[in-house]
Design a protein around this nucleic acid. Structure first.
Lengths: 319, 319
DNA sequence: ATATCGTGATAGTTTTTGCCTATCAGTCGG
DNA sequence: CCGACTGATAGGCAAAAACTATCACGATAT
């Protein structure tokens, strides 16, 4: 006796509406493609569960009761909502009209997605991404627990649960003030950098660890007193002469339109890069489409950002 | 292949929402009071008819797919619409929370309903009437074809399809200008009226025919050149001295608050009245309540309008 | 008056659907 | 590596929903 939430079935509501429209059980049954007795019993059953009369049966014709009159638009609203569900479901079938939750690292998203997403939208006008920026570690965690459907991440952690598709290789450029002693060279000898103060982002950026590794490798010292919270502040600190730094190729490509501000170069013979991947759960039902999507990413990047990054002709691989 | 309007059942949507909420088939099944295999098969069936995946099944846990995520609010909207249907149906059960379409003659409605409807609303706060004024002939036609649920009418045509419940008897008052020769008497001898010009409403008012009958009976002449379209214009014409007229007691009671304008009297020994009835179809499922309703009408009229009309202690009778 | 046609309701039967129990096959944490 | 968890599957039964055939009644035309 808590709450008799005995819902009428959608079919019964459909039958109710059909009879209300034609005011004839026989004609309504024909329109519905069912037999008249079925229609009669179903409507009776609906009336019984609702405990009221929807129709006034007359040997000649059928009329809506005042109650039926009141309930008719509500029943139609249920059917309309069902129809919307159906229509939307149909659109979603092939995966190109769906909204995916995409996670990207903050040091990549703003400099990559503006080139890629508009082009994807051009190809699949109904395809949408809900983009969120987080550090790679949280991205992977979020992908695992369902917060994301897709992430882009530099780490290709082996995991039985992920499918990792390599997108492109991005160089890390060495930047320094225009008036720096090493400025002017396109390639700088690693030995020249020894002893330089290298600035980087705060610790939980993947970028931080990578720079740390590089510094250890070439004997440079990381300047830990000032760690930026964004690539923009990092650039500003370099401009102000606090030190030198590494900046992702896509950032340089996107943001350094005033080349006189900084000198951009690379380390000689030591290609420093990071590799970005598109990653999804191997259990994701969208995995077929995700594989195509990764390919689209590569194609678009190869087309639009060839000057900044390198796209291997890699096919998706499972790790 | 026209349109696969294979609707998901309401139950399946309910199951979908339940699983989406708890992200666990077993817990959702428990919450729904069904077994886990049933839930699994129903959700699978839903996915199959929709031809997409709503959930990503992982041996440890369950996640919504992007499609499921999109469809979830739509499914909830269907359920909410169903809930509204249910809630409304529950309110409508006893008939006192329903909107009834009530038809009344134009010579009665404005002078009766303002006294009755507020009182009915006081007793049944959810009871509503959609009131429409028409001539009695159209009222009966409208009642027959379902345009009205209830009508008030002076005619008590015998009909196998109607139930007629007498409400009250209303006198027709004789009115004349203050300076008329007969003014001043409370009862006028019928013979004195012979030769008087009697004004009335246009032909399709029931009122017209009744006055016609009376005139023939007492030997007065109907003045056919000016037939009013409303009781108000009729009154104005009498005030202007065009002739004398009969006016319904309830109209006199409602509108003649300036008694010096007109003299109101009655014919001696000839009680002229009209009887109003509440009428509904004998097939109307609301007939039990309509019977009560007629009784309420009589009680309210007896209480509020005793000075203007007469209520018999009549019970409902079938004609 | 009476036969005919049209209405929805009913009876009896078959098919489909929904739900159950029992069990399986993976995954995860200790 | 084991036990505890996940959802999926198989088989069976009962309820729901469908069908055909027929009925009872009212309206209408003959």
């Amino acid at each position: 006796m808590t709450s008799d939430n005995k819902f009428p079935s959608i079919n019964q509501l459909k039958y109710f509406v059909a009879v209300a429209k034609s005011l004839s059980f026989r004609r309504a049954a024909q329109a519905l493609g069912i037999s008249q007795p079925t229609l009669t019993t179903q409507v009776q059953s609906l009336e019984k569960t609702m405990n009221l009369s929807l129709f006034e049966r007359n040997r000649s014709g059928t009329l809506l009761t005042p109650q039926g009159n009141t309930l008719l638009p509500l029943a139609q609203e249920v059917l309309r909502a069902g129809q919307r569900f159906n229509d939307t479901a149909r659109e979603l079938i092939d995966g190109t009209s769906t909204t995916y939750r995409l996670g990207v690292p903050p040091t990549l998203g703003p400099y990559l997605l503006p080139f890629v997403l508009p082009e994807l939208h051009r190809r699949f006008s109904q395809l949408k991404f809900y983009v969120r920026e987080e550090f790679p570690q949280q991205l992977e965690e979020g992908l695992l627990n369902g917060q994301y459907d897709l992430i882009i991440s530099p780490s290709n952690h082996e995991s039985a649960q992920f499918i990792v598709s390599e997108l492109f290789t991005e160089p890390l450029k060495l930047v320094m003030p225009k008036d720096h002693a090493l400025a002017g060279q396109e390639f700088v000898k690693p030995t020249d950098v020894q002893g330089e103060k290298v600035l980087t982002l705060e610790g939980h950026h993947h970028f931080h660890h990578q720079v740390q590794t590089i510094c250890a490798q070439i004997g440079a010292q990381m300047y830990r007193d000032y760690e930026g919270t964004s690539l923009d502040t990092l650039r500003q600190m370099v401009v102000m002469g606090v030190g030198i730094s590494f900046l992702p190729g896509l950032y340089v490509h996107s943001e350094l339109h005033r080349p006189n501000e900084l000198h951009v170069c690379e380390l000689q013979n030591i290609p420093i890069t990071r590799v970005q991947h598109l990653i999804w759960r191997n259990t994701a039902p969208g995995r077929v489409f995700f594989r195509e999507l990764a390919q689209f990413f590569r194609e678009i990047v190869a087309e639009k950002l060839a000057s900044a990054v390198h796209v291997k002709n890699t096919t998706t691989r499972k790790i």
